[in-house]
Design a binder for these strands. Structure first.
Length: 493
RNA sequence: GGCCCAUUCGUCUAGUGGUUAGGACAGCGGCUUUUCAAGCCGUUAACGGGAGUUCGAUUCUCCCAUGGGCUACCA
């Protein structure tokens, strides 16, 4: 039975890197008919915050990664907050203690820091000296009387070579001599990451630990701990890192790093999923577009590569634009509406009115192919539908066309538009009639169509005048045309 | 400093002991066109370096270089 987990610590917003790790865990579980578990690693009481946990869960939900067990979903192996599992950890801490694999260390942070500095200075590997490893009870008592507090260190077996299989990297080998007796708990009731994670992965029967490469150095520590407790070692797969453009680990200094920030920015979860899965993995062929459901069928760990990949938003934008064009129009419209509202082009009330809704849908459908993010929808591209237009009079002139010729062209457009019934005021009908008139008048398209388009949109770049006119409706279209006509006549030849 | 990891176009990547080293994004050019976008077509661009193995290495081995991760009473 495959069981994978994502084990974020709620000490910050849901990070893109965590999301990618979650995705690989999720896909691997789904592909193998296994379970995907969310465990909140909140042993650090100082830094863990409930709002971060909410952010993480919301991010996972937004991406569509439904978890089988987790903090809000009862499962056989709960609770799923480490903070609720302290009694469990205590039991194993005591077991280690009984086996004499644990000892109290009375060194202060300052002392340890000093020791480390000395070692680095003398080019030694920085390791704990083991000073407290053989304290007698009397010594301990004396130190405590001094007012010193202690931490719990795990006794490492020296001079051993460990080989751990990694699904992505092959065999990883470690020499226990480079390890020191690391601190696994502040006291019997306050476990630390490297200890708690081993207990939980065992108790929750996690079969595959898929996580970032930054954890490779934790592998020997955790393997030794598991061995000491007679746990079987799970399978490992260490994912390559996601990088900044300068090839350092993805950080908020250089990138937006909070997942949900991408949502507010106008990215679609489909695009993020598709983009992220291709960072360090590929299915082998030339195909690049995949839905989550498809990935659940084809994902495999053996095709994950070993080197880090840069988070390049150009490609993300391309995926996003692709999914914007593909998306169901009513779904897309509902995603776009809040942006119209916050840009001030719509009130909440208007947005929920039936006829407005139909209009917004048409606008969205027209503009979708020229935006990369849904947040761009009201910006510069479509305000002319919802507000009056403003433009420089000279913009009405196409290439070298004179004001007179432009005026004539626009009058033809006006005449055609006027002749159309309200019911015939559709994009295709308008196009057909206008082009017919252009041919009959032996004119160039641009002489008529350019000024028409500018009069309706006020922009040098916009959708076609046929589409715009149809959405604007006959009345408003003609208003704008006659307004433009007036402005042309004020132009000097 | 120590330990570990990585290295194919600018970016994401495919790939093989003999290939015109393939695709995608970005870039550039063109077609289409009233403009923008989309679409289509084309194009620039890569095997980090040095030894070795071999008839032949981008591919296998070693060394070097470069880059990165870790080196907490964080996770």
């Amino acid at each position: 039975m495959v069981r994978t987990r994502i084990a974020p610590s709620p000490t910050g917003f849901f990070h893109i890197g965590t999301a990618r790790t979650a995705l690989f865990n999720y896909l691997f579980a789904k592909k193998n008919n296994g379970s995907f578990i969310v465990r909140i690693e909140d042993t650090d009481k100082e830094r863990s915050k409930p709002e971060f946990e909410r952010d993480i869960l919301e991010g996972l939900t937004w991406l569509g990664m439904q978890w089988d067990e987790g903090p809000d979903k009862k499962g056989e192996y709960g609770p799923y907050h480490q903070s609720e599992r302290f009694a469990l950890y205590r039991r194993y801490l005591e077991e280690l203690n009984n086996k004499s694999l644990l000892y109290k260390c009375y060194c202060t942070k300052e002392e340890l820091e000093e020791e480390r500095e000395m070692q680095v200075l003398s080019r030694q590997p920085p390791r704990y000296s083991g000073k407290c490893s053989a304290r007698t009870a009397a010594e301990q008592h004396a130190l405590e009387k001094e007012g010193r507090t202690s931490t719990l260190r795990f006794r490492i077996e020296r001079n051993r070579k460990l080989t751990i299989k990694d699904h992505i990297r092959g065999d990883l080998t470690f020499d226990t001599d480079i390890l020191d007796d690391f601190i696994i708990a502040k006291d019997f009731d306050t476990p630390l990451y490297n200890f708690a994670v081993v207990i939980d992965d065992h108790l929750m029967k996690i079969s595959h630990i898929i996580r970032g490469e930054e954890h490779i150095s934790n592998v020997p520590k955790q393997a030794l701990l598991a061995e000491a407790l007679d746990f079987s070692t799970p399978e490992f797969a260490h994912l390559p890192l996601i990088l900044n453009p300068d090839r350092t680990k993805l950080s908020k200094r250089q990138n937006k790093v909070s997942l949900l920030e991408y949502r507010t920015d106008g990215y679609l979860s489909e695009a993020l999923i598709n983009f992220m899965v291709l960072l360090g993995w590929n299915p082998g062929g030339d195909r690049e577009i995949f839905t989550l459901a498809e990935l659940e069928e084809i994902f495999d760990l053996t095709r994950v590569n070993k080197s880090g990949s840069i988070f390049d938003t150009h490609k993300l934008d391309w995926f996003n634009a692709h999914y914007i064009r593909e998306m169901d129009i009513s779904k897309l419209t509902s995603l776009c509406t809040p942006y119209f509202i916050s840009a001030g082009y719509l009130t909440e009330k208007e947005a929920s009115a039936k006829h407005e809704d139909a209009k917004i849908e048409k606008i969205v459908d027209l503009e979708r192919e020229r935006i990369h993010k849904i947040s761009e929808i009201p910006l510069h591209t479509s305000y002319f539908f919802l507000t009056d237009v403003e433009y420089d009079d000279h913009l009405l002139l196409w290439k070298n066309t004179s004001p007179q010729a432009t005026q004539e062209g626009l009058r033809i457009a006006e005449k055609v538009l006027l002749s159309l019934d309200e019911s015939d005021f559709t994009a295709s009908k308008i196009e057909q009639k206008l082009k017919q008139a252009i041919v009959e008048g032996k004119l160039k398209n641009g002489v008529v169509l350019w000024p028409l388009r500018v009069s309706l949109t006020g922009l040098a770049a916009s959708p076609s005048p046929f589409d715009v006119a149809a959405i604007l409706g006959k009345k408003k279209t003609l208003e704008r045309v006659s307004h433009a006509l007036k402005r042309i006549s004020s132009l000097r030849p």
